[in-house]
Each structure stands twice: as structure tokens, then as C-alpha cells.
């Protein structure tokens, strides 16, 4: 048996890693704000954040396709600044994946921050810690399980992305052809052997990752003592 082309696998891992990294960077402040705010805009932002959970990926993909198109204001602006189009490009795929996986980053973090409550942060304030200091030294370490969950869910969710990629990225080897697209193509061309191998890799990888997370969570039940 020969292995199928593993290019789509590496591309997928690359995409998932970049997406997860950027999401943690941007999703953490958003989740922190949502956990702290008493603003009336909170339910609106929460609903927007949760939208990718319920929206068919094709709908999200369709709107992104329209937005990314060089004929739209945003798409044209992007072309002007970078010289490249967002449609059918890896960058476009990253942006699409970030939107698609956003709730998987924000929701675990938000609930982790909310479960800390105001008390430890007040205690830190009374120890001369500034607001950023309180976040970095108290909230973030106490929410480490939330960070672990957010990272793993965002990463594995991006791995399995299909509909959005198909709409925005198409099927360009080495650029936008991710593993789920490759599997679909193998099935279309009745190449079940290769579809099996790639599917099995994704299945085992996802299972092992989740197993790891749940074992770790069991090991640190309170987030307190190592």
C-alpha cells in the first residue's frame, strides 16, 4: 500500500496552528471583556460570536466569498494594500477559519474567566496589582484549563473545516487544499483507499488530542495543586 499525497495534511495542520494562535491572541481580550462587562452591547456581541456555531458553513463561506471578492470594497482594499486577492488564497482561508472557529476559542475562555469571579481579582488589586497585572498573574493562570480547552477545540475544529474552505478557498494543492477537501476529492474519484488513510489519520489524531485534554483536566481537577 502506498501512502496518499500527505500535502493536504501538512497544510491543514499549518492552517489550524496559525488559526488557533491568532484566535487565542484576539479571542482572549474579547472573552475577558465579555466576562467583565456590564455593557448593554454584551448580548449582541455574544450572539455574533456564537453565530458560526449554528450557521451552515456554506452560508458563512458565501458571505466571506462576497466580502473577499476584489469587486467588494474590502476585497479591493486588500488587493490594493497587499497585491493579492483573499479569495482562493491561504490568507483568506486563515481569516475564514478564524471566524468559523471563533466560538470555540471565546466560549471556553469566557466561562473560565467568569467562574473565577471578582474575588481573586479584588484581592490582587489590594496587593497593588494593576488591571493588566491582575489579568496576567491571577486571571490567566486560574483560567489555564479554559485556555487548554479553547486551544484544543479551536485547533481540532479547524482541522475538520470543509464547507467554508470549499466556498472561499477552493481546491488548490499546497495553498487551499486541506485534508477534508482532499478526502472529498478522493471519494469523488472513487479512490476509497486514500480516503480511508486520510480519514483514519484525522480520526485518530482528533481522538488522541481530545483524550489528552480530558486526561489533563482530570489530573488538575481544581487548577490548584500540581
Amino acid at each position: 500500500m502506498t501512502l496518499p499525497d500527505l500535502g493536504p495534511l501538512w497544510l491543514t495542520l499549518h492552517l489550524a496552528a496559525i488559526t488557533t494562535g491568532l484566535l487565542l491572541l484576539l479571542g482572549t481580550p474579547l472573552a475577558w471583556w465579555l466576562a467583565q462587562t456590564k455593557s448593554r452591547a454584551k448580548p449582541i456581541i455574544e450572539a455574533l460570536t456564537a453565530l458560526p456555531l449554528v450557521l451552515p458553513p456554506t452560508v458563512l463561506g458565501f458571505y466571506l466569498l462576497v466580502l473577499f471578492s476584489p469587486n467588494s470594497t474590502f476585497g479591493a482594499f486588500w488587493v490594493q494594500v497587499t497585491g493579492e486577492t483573499l479569495t482562493f488564497s491561504f490568507t483568506g482561508l486563515v481569516i475564514a477559519s478564524m471566524l468559523y472557529s471563533l466560538p470555540f476559542t471565546v466560549q471556553p475562555l469566557q466561562s473560565a474567566f467568569e467562574s473565577i469571579g471578582p474575588k481573586p481579582l479584588e484581592a490582587a488589586a489590594m496587593l497593588r496589582a494593576s488591571p493588566f497585572d491582575r489579568f496576567a498573574t491571577v486571571a490567566a493562570p486560574m483560567a489555564k484549563r479554559g485556555f487548554l480547552t479553547a486551544t484544543v477545540l479551536s485547533f481540532t475544529h479547524t482541522l475538520g473545516e470543509f464547507g467554508v474552505v470549499l466556498m472561499v478557498g477552493g481546491n488548490i494543492p499546497g495553498k487551499t487544499k486541506v485534508i477534508s477537501i482532499a478526502i472529498y476529492e478522493h471519494v469523488e474519484t472513487i479512490n476509497y483507499a486514500d480516503a480511508h488513510v486520510l480519514s483514519a489519520i484525522l480520526l485518530v489524531f482528533s481522538f488522541v488530542t481530545l483524550l489528552l485534554v480530558y486526561s489533563l483536566n482530570r489530573q488538575f481537577p481544581t487548577g490548584g495543586r500540581p
Binding site: 484581592a123 490582587a124 488589586a125 489590594m126 496587593l127 497593588r128 481544581t222 490548584g224
Partner: peptide
């Protein structure tokens, strides 16, 4: 803000950092 008042505060529930 509280962190610039230079006060010490001992809370009823101690609020030691569990981590």
C-alpha cells in the same frame, strides 16, 4: 483606583491565590 490607594485588605474568606 484600589491598587493605587496603598491599603492592605484582609478579606473574611482570606482570598489567598489557590494557584
Amino acid at each position: 483606583p484600589p491598587h493605587k490607594r496603598g491599603l492592605g485588605y484582609v478579606f473574611q474568606d482570606t482570598r489567598l491565590f489557590p494557584h
